[in-house]
Design a protein around this nucleic acid. Structure first.
Length: 575
RNA sequence: CGGGGCGUGGCUCAGCUUGGUAGAGCACCUGGUUCGGGAUCAGGGGGUCGCAGGUUCGAAUCCUGCCGCCCCGACCA
């Protein structure tokens, strides 16, 4: 491709509204342009890179026996009402009406449509398992699109769905996907951590996210340096640091006056025996309109995703001060669970076995001491509620945990029967009995993966594409269009290399500096500079983008050298 | 949805406090000199200052409302 004939509008300055590195570079290198918040047009270079990623995804999906579909993006509301999600999902779904006032929506994911096809067509366990996938645009009206293509409202996703007769089959399908995902990310040059994740409103039993460590990410991932434990912060657990409790069961609960004390810190400062670790933090939420208490150690923080997992309810909010007073008789700051029998109470694991604790007395300006969790609190439901912090200990090996920002590249779910039951997708099993099909669903965000690649592969001069997803492998740069000899040699090299590689020929009438800057910005892995200086000695310059190494190559060795470089560059360790 | 910021040629920004003929650099067009890491000189084209209303003799500038975009948080099948 001649540079003069491909549209690559590079930008000299950083765009004003871009913050994330990948966002800046995608704009500057002329990969994308923004149309609206979270909506981007792919320009030729961006589209090429995107298709490279898609090709890898396609190959690896086909390797595990997946079949490619292409489903509509316009969905009848009816289908989503069947699964119930029409009502569960709020403003994040783009909804519209047709001319007859019928409900429609734009697909934010495709469980419903794939399940409907399966329901219409699958009758027997003999037709299973099936692995179906597509690479299709999704629409989600995100409350806050951000970081360019990292979180858009319209984006391309590879989504796949598996159908099995039983849960053992689902496990197989799930593992196949995990393996395919590992290969996909590795081939794109990205080191992806497989981490335990919360399933959220998706339902289902188990889910794993694939994360790339990056400051541009929005998720927090907990990892253990010594074993392979890794989990989303929303799911992560840790060993509780030990606390010096009294050996003996303390005396009876004792109420004491704490005038004006409203916070954990204030109480710790007020009473030397009430350090944060020795307090029970009582949080009150309205969970599906039911006032519910959540107990944590004073120095721990509640993670609301864990709250949702523990209660199985997505509809919750912190209770108002007034609701607290009504239910417990006191305002926040003096709340406690002692003597409360009629409200559901969830307690974090870290409170197990604790004694001699301090907590609110449900009377303003009073607290209780000598509270023993198991002795004095009724009907506790134990759960992991607290948020892990860096430095906590790993539950598997006891070593220190780290918390890092990560980009979620993919997410795989064991859906189980959630959709097949709701939408009546059944087959006859080998006993002739009608059974619901066991499903899984699996997604990879294509543009997000591309952005993650750039987050991992760039330097001060621009993008440094890994060979596998580079929109072009090589750029042939003649120094001057006026030098006939150089132009002719450059053309020759360009034509020859094109047989095996994707090559750009920078035939623009620009000064060399401009061409070099652009080539660097755009990130072409190899550059061959053809100029009079070199040709006098019978050489051209081979420049490797990643290492910035230049080497003079005799004209007759160009193809061999390129081949060697290409082979080496194709074998990069994921980062 | 809460908080903050921004909206001025294609891009990056100045001008706004204190109202008075819309600016710079880059990009673009013409010509010259240049040509191995974003050249330079001369000339030139291009802007309803986000939109609407108001105040004023006069508004990019002050006031009100709306829209859009970015950032933090909440949210995130």
């Amino acid at each position: 491709m001649r540079w003069s004939q491909i549209f690559i509008p590079t930008l000299r300055d950083d765009p004003a509204d871009a913050e994330a590195i990948s966002h800046k570079l995608m704009l500057r290198a002329g990969l994308v342009r923004q149309l609206a918040a979270g909506v981007y047009s792919k320009l030729p270079l961006g589209f090429r890179a995107s298709r490279k990623v898609e090709a890898i995804v396609r190959e690896e999906m086909e390797r595990i026996g997946a079949q490619e579909f292409h489903l509509p993006v316009l969905h009848p509301g009816e289908l989503w009402k069947e699964s119930g999600r029409w009502f569960d999902i709020g403003d994040e779904m783009f909804r519209l009406k047709d001319r007859r006032q019928g409900d429609y929506c734009l697909g934010m994911t495709h469980e419903e449509v794939f399940t409907a096809i399966a329901r219409d067509e699958l009758r027997s366990y003999r037709q299973l398992p099936q692995i179906w996938f597509q690479i299709q645009t999704k629409f989600r009206d995100e409350a806050r699109p951000k970081s360019g293509v990292l979180r858009g409202r319209e984006f391309v996703m590879k989504d796949s769905y598996t159908f099995d007769v039983d849960f053992a089959g689902l496990d197989v399908a799930f593992d196949k996907h995990a393996e395919a995902y590992r290969r996909i990310f590795a081939r794109c040059g990205v080191r992806a951590l497989a981490v335990q994740a919360a399933s959220g409103a998706m339902g289902g039993s188990e889910s794993v996210e694939f994360m790339s460590v990056s400051d541009a990410g929005e998720d927090w991932t907990v990892t253990c340096a010594s074993c392979d434990y890794a989990a989303n912060l929303e799911k992560a657990t840790s060993v509780v640091s030990s606390v010096d409790d009294p050996r003996e069961e303390p005396g009876d609960i004792e109420k004491f006056s704490t005038p004006g004390i409203r916070t954990i810190e204030a109480l710790a400062a007020f009473d030397e025996n009430a350090s944060a670790q020795r307090q029970i933090k009582t949080l009150v939420y309205s969970v599906d309109d039911q006032v519910t208490l959540f107990l944590l150690r004073g120095d721990h923080t509640l993670n609301e995703v864990k709250l949702a997992e523990a209660t199985g309810v997505a509809n919750f909010r912190a209770a108002t001060a007034e609701e607290c007073r009504e239910a417990l008789g006191a305002l926040p700051g003096s709340l406690g669970a002692a003597g409360i029998a009629e409200l559901p109470i969830y307690a974090d694991d870290a409170l197990k076995g604790r004694r001699g604790m301090v907590t609110g007395a449900n009377e303003d300006d009073f607290h209780l001491r000598n509270v023993s969790v198991e002795r004095d609190l009724d009907k506790l439901q134990w759960a992991s509620l607290r948020e892990v912090v860096a430095g906590d200990r790993c539950v598997h090996c006891g070593n220190e945990l780290a918390v890092q920002r990560t980009i979620e590249l993919g997410h795989i779910f064991k859906l189980g029967l959630r959709y097949s039951e709701a939408m009546k997708l059944t087959v006859l099993n080998d006993q002739g009995r009608e059974v619901p099909v066991v499903m899984g669903s699996y997604g990879i965000g294509i543009e997000r993966l591309l952005a993650a690649v750039i987050e991992s592969y760039h330097d001060d001069n621009g993008i440094v594409w890994p060979w596998s997803v580079a929109p072009f492998h090589i750029v042939v740069t003649p120094i001057s269009l006026k030098n006939a000899d150089a132009m002719q040699k450059a053309e020759g090299i360009y034509h020859e290399l094109q047989k095996d590689y994707e090559v750009l020929f920078d035939d623009r009438d620009e000064r060399p500096g401009v061409k070099f800057k652009d080539a660097d910005l755009v990130g072409v892995p190899l550059r061959i500079v053809v100029g009079p200086k070199g040709l006098e000695k019978g050489v051209v310059e081979l420049f490797e983008r990643a290492s910035q190494q230049k080497e003079d190559i005799p004209l007759d060795r160009v193809f061999d050298e390129v081949r060697a470089c290409a082979a080496r560059l194709a074998e990069v360790e994921p980062r």
